[in-house]
């Protein structure tokens, strides 16, 4: 972050790459919905595998989509690391906050059923 390390704005990657990313994003969204449907229909293939792992699958897919948009559409991949830090650090705090609250309330409710 030192002075005068002028990060020259690289030429942004072109439409071809953007299209690829868009297709991947679309496919991943389709996979999310597919996973949801599979987990809700006991007759469908892979139901037994997907059903218990639905949340995990969704988290991974959504995190991947998030990363793709941030890296390619928001240009974090070639932009200054400062920008990445400005997203990642708050995200860490945000994740800690959400997780901690969920754990705290789960723990509390386990101790006092009916609350």
């Amino acid at each position: 972050m030192d002075a005068q390390v002028a990060t020259h704005e690289h030429a942004h990657p072109g439409p071809a790459l953007y299209l690829k990313v868009a297709v991947i994003l679309f496919v991943m969204t389709a996979l999310e919905v597919l996973a949801f449907e599979v987990s809700h229909r006991s007759g469908w293939p892979m139901h037994g595998l997907v059903q218990p792992l639905l949340n995990e699958i969704l988290i991974i897919l959504s995190a991947a989509k998030f990363a793709l948009v941030a890296m390619f559409y928001m240009h974090l991949k070639q932009d200054s690391k400062i920008f990445s830090g400005l997203l990642v650090f708050p995200l860490i705090i945000a994740a800690v906050v959400i997780l901690a609250l969920l754990l705290l309330f789960a723990y509390l409710r386990a101790q006092h059923p009916g609350m």
Partner: peptide, 18 residues
């Protein structure tokens, strides 16, 4: 500083772990 807020809430009975 973002990981200690509940020290204001010991008396709510968060349980021994928390």
């Amino acid at each position: 500083g973002f990981g200690v807020w509940s020290h204001h809430m010991f008396s709510t009975g968060m349980g021994p772990m928390a």
